[in-house]
């Protein structure tokens, strides 16, 4: 995880215009395809009520562990089969996208906002602010991520907002470190010194001069982290600390289905594939994004 952050942190601000980067991104067919898949997942999450063939929470004990459609005992109206309570797995996967994507997006947005602000302050102002922020970062890094999140979930109780909080509490460290490093390099740059020389206020320098120049690594890191956060949420749900049932979450679907892997392999296989597909697409797309924004790394 550190390595991902490490390897994307460029040494100097990239000056390539955004449209040029986007053009490069679109030209990369793989990344484009991945981005389209991600977009499809997002659309699926938004339009879940129209797309899902069944109510995802409707129990039907008579359909308990009904196999996927193409198997013996399957039915085409229940394409991917049913889970331990007879709920349609496809519908639950479609609705589960909402949880994964919402958590991935919201956690990364908040964490990036908080982390960028703190990293900026620490890197530019140095002094006690830097010491304080860096110490807190050091301390948080000492905690294993999942254990920290589990302990927080135990403290706050289950629920969507609490998962988001539990992940944000540690996640902000990643952008904060990246931004701090970038700012440390940037504050010695000519354009910053020039701004300082003309007596521009500190806040102005930080927000108007430095921030735009370090934005691209931040965006790249954020997209990569989104993939991580989605896996983390799934892991939390898998350990039974996710969203409240009956709300579908891919991680808890895998966990529930695990009890039946000896016979009903479909119950945990399909939601797992959904996680893999979404996370993989995000990773491919974000790699493309990185290459596009930062051609230095494209080899």
């Amino acid at each position: 995880m550190n390595a991902a952050a490490l390897s994307v942190a460029p040494e100097k601000p990239t000056r390539s215009p955004t449209w040029e980067s986007l053009r490069r991104f679109v030209a990369d067919r793989f990344s484009l395809l991945a981005a389209i898949v991600v977009a499809l997942f997002i659309l699926m999450a938004i339009f879940a009520p129209w797309l899902a063939p069944h109510d995802p929470d409707e129990n039907d004990l008579l359909r308990r562990l009904q196999p996927a459609a193409w198997m013996e005992g399957g039915e085409w109206s229940y394409l991917l089969g049913c889970d331990g309570l007879g709920r349609d797995i496809l519908s639950r996967i479609i609705y589960g996208a909402r949880v994964s994507i919402a958590i991935g997006v919201v956690v990364v947005l908040i964490a990036t906002a908080v982390g960028t602000a703190l990293g900026l302050a620490a890197g530019y102002m140095r002094g006690w602010v830097d010491i304080l922020v860096s110490r807190v970062i050091d301390i948080l890094l000492g905690f294993p991520y999942l254990i920290f999140a589990i302990a927080l979930m135990a403290m706050m109780g289950p629920g969507l907002e609490n998962i988001i909080l539990a992940l944000v509490y540690k996640e902000w460290v990643v952008p904060a470190r990246v931004v701090r490093g970038e700012v440390l390099a940037a504050r010695e740059m000519e354009y910053v010194e020039a701004a300082r020389a003309v007596g521009a206020p500190r806040l102005h320098i930080m927000v108007r001069e430095i921030l735009p120049n370090i934005l691209s690594p931040v965006i790249v890191v954020s997209t990569i982290r989104m993939a991580h956060v989605i896996i983390l949420e799934a892991s939390l749900s898998f350990l039974g600390l996710g969203v409240q049932p009956p709300t579908a979450s891919w991680g808890s679907m895998v966990a529930d289905g695990r009890a039946f892997i000896l016979d009903a392999w479909w119950a945990s296989t399909f939601p797992g594939i959904a996680i893999l597909l979404l996370v993989l697409s995000i990773n491919v797309a974000s790699q493309g994004l990185r290459d596009a924004f930062d051609p230095k790394f494209s080899d």
Binding site: E58, N59, L85, G240, P245, P246, D256
Partner: peptide
Amino acid sequence: GPFKDVVGAIAG
């Protein structure tokens, strides 16, 4: 957590 299944059925 372990009784999720049963409780889901009861709640329904």
